[in-house]
Design a protein around this nucleic acid. Structure first.
Lengths: 213, 213
DNA sequence: ACCGGGGTGTTACCTCGGGTAACACCGTCG
DNA sequence: CGACGGTGTTACCCGAGGTAACACCCCGGT
């Protein structure tokens, strides 16, 4: 069997295993699912990161393209943002296990770069950065703001999306609204609640000392 | 040597090692640093997660308390938010390696719950949620919004802070401004850039087909 | 028809990290 | 003095990533 179809087939197997066992699936398990043995996997993908990389790229290419498209949509800005948010949430909703894989950085990489955003998400962040840079007039700070916001928005959607996926507290549409509202400064615009400025419920432990380690 | 001081001492050793080698530090290395051997570590902390948990709690207690305090500060809301952001960034700036540990969820946990936010960050998210719930008038949706925003803001600051810490593109103050601006809806308020609605710079590869690898 | 090479596949192994069993040492209490 | 509970050790198990060395097979060249 020639290289490319075999590769596809291996990725499909890896996919099934991860669907079933989560992102911690072992190379052995994946090889077994594919009906072959480990060295073949390693010949095709180099190492585990290679496999995971190929897999994530397969899955993200669709999501990324969709997000890119959503970012370029000729809509009112708010609608465009909602469209992007919805695209992302729909994507992770469709394949939760794979999504977890995407968001998990390589476990225990000692290479100093302990990025909070896995490569797949980094791409999304860059996409958002580019979109902001090219579409929004932010004055002199635009490069800094676009980059910071790209990461920030991605992280926000990651964390919030993760929570939503776990608990499903509301419809996707509602969640999109909630996040868009946040980005639209609703936190800033809302009124104060007068009474409820209690000193906050302190759990057991020493809460008062900031950094006396 | 009695239990508690020993425990402290072991945590200090673990701290040093992680400071030096990053969050992937092995139990062996930690034991060696403490001048003892693995089983002692396991007697004290059960397993690696126990150690990591104890360590993160030690470090987060300070940060968490500081954030709690910042959230309760009697300031204008914008100033309060900036204060919280600054507190977080200052915290991670002070101890990058430890911070990476905090943000790393347990590597390869097969238990289905692949949360994007590590426990330490979860606490911060809850704190924000509580603060929003008790301080901001959000009408009927307040529970949903507060929870979604708590996670979202935490994720945002996590990702953006991570990037900032890596690249240090600006001062902390400026970064705080950038994030507060985002939360204040500056993205929504800014004007469109007229000319630059290009179809987005497409990187090499097939961008239009979703999964043709 | 034979032979050699490159690709596919295997078994068997190495290494390293988390985790544990079993034993040694030592102060204390009856 | 002897038994016991605690601290500490060595030596090991296991599972996962990764690799070396070998077997097989098809295919092209002479």
């Amino acid at each position: 069997m020639s290289r490319e179809p075999r590769r596809e087939q291996l990725l499909n197997a890896a996919d099934r295993v991860i669907q079933r066992e989560g992102p911690g699936a072992s190379m052995n398990a994946i090889a077994a699912e594919a009906g072959i043995t480990k060295p073949i996997l390693y010949r095709h993908f180099g190492d585990r990161n290679g496999l995971i990389g190929a897999l994530t790229e397969r899955h993200t290419s669709g999501l990324l393209a969709a997000i890119r498209a959503a970012l370029a949509e000729p809509l009112e800005r708010r609608d465009r943002v909602e469209h992007v948010l919805d695209t992302y949430l729909a994507g992770i909703e469709a394949r939760p296990q794979v999504y977890r894989l995407l968001t998990h950085p390589e476990p225990g990489d000692p290479s100093g770069a302990g990025n909070a955003l896995a490569p797949a998400l980094r791409q999304i962040a860059e996409e958002i950065t580019r979109a902001v840079q090219s579409q929004v007039d932010l004055g002199a700070d635009r490069d800094l703001l676009a980059e910071a916001w790209g990461r920030g928005i991605t992280g926000m959607v990651l964390a919030a999306g993760d929570w939503w996926l776990e608990t499903k507290p509301c419809t996707r549409t509602r969640m999109v609204q909630a996040l868009a509202d946040l980005l639209w400064g609703r936190l800033a615009a809302a009124a104060d609640l007068p009474t409820a400025v209690l000193p906050s419920p302190v759990p057991p432990g020493g809460p008062t000392e900031p950094a006396t380690d």
